[in-house]
Design a protein around this nucleic acid. Structure first.
Lengths: 144, 144
DNA sequence: ATTATATAGGATTATAAGGTCTTGTAATAT
DNA sequence: ATATTACAAGACCTTATAATCCTATATAAT
């Protein structure tokens, strides 16, 4: 809906890294198993994250991946853009009408614009530390 | 984003019908040309709209299509559901976490829920008459 | 009746996203 | 040194959406 399946997996993987902070690298296969993501596919996604410096990879025995930066400095929209590419320059019209803009708005324009803004705000306002914390809290709650 | 390309074309076509109200049927090819939609593709989409009774088709010479009901009684979400199928029973989590619900919310849950509601509200609140009127107004504005 | 014209609909192709397979390469424990 | 382990990366397969092709069928004008 808001991003591709790949980006979704990337977010999940990075939440995992954030939850399991450790000096030692964490294996991609472990993350894949934990979130039930196809291993090979996640490995590919991680390659992109590495190139974008969102995660650091350590090769070889005892290798794995770590966050590229502290978890409170990584925001969800960064992950999405790293995987799905940057957002379009000119936001496109909801009903695909050419020449739709603030000056000549399409019929849904005025209702859609604030919603689109809210979405961007949501993704830009959440950092990994936040997410991981709440996932952990959720796990606790579910044990009961 | 909110619906498939097919649904987008369907909305455009029905706006056209709403703008050009007439007793006589309007040709699919004319609509396709007007909105730059691949003709054969639109024809196929229209077949579905006909089955769902959102438009009425008249075959043969001088044939074409008309709205199935008055334009002020047709809402955008009906068109979307007719083409893309009905919305899922259980709304799915934004970051794809299983077991995400109001009771055990995922990290983005509280921010996403009201946005999702706004979107549904937007699509359910706009009827064709409204849209067509504004498209017409827009055309006028652009002439200047 | 015949012909032109428009939708109906099955079969097929194109493209992109999602997912798998296989081999290469770096690091380290032995 | 060498075997093992884990990421890197290219080629390939699968599925869904988007788009096209071709023929059938209905209808109205001639």
């Amino acid at each position: 809906m808001l991003y591709s399946k790949s980006a979704e997996y990337a977010i999940q993987a990075m939440i995992y890294l954030s939850e399991n902070k450790s000096e030692k690298p964490i294996m991609i296969s472990k993350i894949a198993a934990s979130y039930d993501i196809p291993y090979q596919f996640l490995a590919k996604i991680v390659q992109t994250l590495v190139k974008q410096r969102l995660v650091k990879a350590t090769r070889g025995r005892n290798g794995g991946i770590n966050l590229g930066r502290p978890s409170h400095e990584i925001y969800v929209n960064e992950i999405v853009h790293a995987i799905d590419g940057p957002p379009p320059e000119r936001e496109q019209c909801v009903i695909g009408l050419d020449l739709c803009s603030d000056e000549t708005p399409c019929p849904l324009h005025d209702k859609w614009k604030p919603i689109r803004y809210k979405i961007a705000e949501m993704l830009a306002g959440e950092h990994l530390d936040d997410l991981a914390e709440r996932v952990t809290a959720k796990r606790e709650k579910m044990k009961k």
